[in-house]
């Protein structure tokens, strides 16, 4: 066999300790610089999102808002809507705001009801779609996806007629069903993704260990999909909590108002905008969302929509 030799002069010389130290320092400096730039950039990008929230919180506790932007003077008076019933400037009952706690209760019914329906249906359906082959599964998934892409607003009139014929107009149940239905495809894909991620082996193992199909689903699979369930529950709660258009369209009674409508009337029905009151109601409205994100960040990060394996 032929011997291959490399001429000595062509071999790369190893660096001296001084050179290595200099190179290492350069690498360190570059790393610090990169980190700093990333933080500066991210801060700049976040500013337009963060500043309005800061203003909102500041304004909620201030006496005045000068020039519409600078809050000054601490007060809790803006929060009077919490203890003064039927707040309002305009005389007569029509111009007065409904009791806030009634409104909160309505919003909670809407949000919890939506979450309950979405969680139960998407968990069962997500499991079935993930595990069972059935004819037209691909078609079903595509259809669900198309439904998600559909703007719900375009269905308003049709839904109004549908709800009227079902005698569900003016009832919270009607709104709950509409919101749950429109958001189910998304929840379904999230749950399908979670079930796709649970190995078949574990399910088979549960069956061989003596569990029925239902028992295996309940005791072995559900606990492992609990991050998905938490995420879907949270999202659907917020869909219900933040909904405006469906409640406005389908619920005509003032006693069935939700937080979004309440906030809207605070903005719209006063002759001179009471920014302080508006901000306080806004902050109050945000609390559930903030709490949810605070406690469920970890679960939210687990969401994957997964492929539409079909």
């Amino acid at each position: 066999m032929e011997q291959v030799t490399i001429p000595a002069g062509q071999l790369r010389r190893w660096r001296t300790p001084q050179e290595v130290a200099a190179l290492a320092q350069r690498a360190r400096r570059r790393e610090v610089l990169t980190q700093t730039m990333i933080y500066v950039l991210l801060t700049l990008i976040s500013l337009p999102i963060v500043v309005p929230y800061l203003w909102l919180v500041a304004a909620a506790f201030s006496e005045r808002v000068s020039y519409g932007i600078i809050p000054s003077g601490f007060t809790l008076n803006n929060w009077r809507f919490l203890w003064v019933a039927n707040l309002g400037f305009v005389s007569g009952t029509a111009g007065r705001l409904p009791n806030i706690w009634q409104v909160v209760a309505n919003s909670l019914v809407l949000a919890v009801g939506t979450a309950a329906i979405v969680v139960v249906v998407s968990t069962l359906a997500g499991y079935f779609i993930s595990r069972h082959g059935f004819s037209r599964r691909a078609g079903f998934l595509k259809g669900a996806l198309a439904l998600q892409a559909f703007p719900g607003i375009t269905l308003l009139v049709a839904l109004f007629i549908l709800l009227r014929s079902l005698n569900l107009l003016n009832s919270m149940l009607g709104v709950i069903l509409v919101i749950a239905a429109l958001h189910l495809p998304f929840a379904l894909f999230v749950m399908k993704g979670f079930f796709d991620g649970i190995p078949w082996d574990i399910e088979m193992s549960a069956l061989i260990d003596g569990a029925s199909r239902l028992r295996a689903w309940y005791t072995v699979l559900l606990p492992q999909a609990r991050n998905g369930i938490a995420a879907v529950a949270m999202f659907s709660f917020l869909w219900g909590w933040t909904d405006y258009i469906y409640v406005l369209t389908f619920v005509l009674r003032r006693s069935s108002w939700t937080m979004a409508l309440y906030l809207n009337s605070v903005i719209g029905e006063y002759r001179f905008a009471d920014y302080g009151l508006m901000a306080a109601v806004g902050v109050f409205y945000m609390i559930p969302s903030l709490l949810f994100f605070l406690f469920t960040q970890r679960q939210l990060l687990q969401i994957t929509l997964g492929g539409t394996k079909a």
């Binding site: 190995p199 082996d201 574990i202 088979m204 193992s205 549960a206 061989i208 072995v220 606990p223 492992q224």
Partner: peptide, 11 residues
């Protein structure tokens, strides 16, 4: 049965 992946219940 013992599976190749062991299939222990992680929770």
């Amino acid at each position: 049965m013992v599976f190749q992946s062991y299939a222990l219940y992680p929770h």
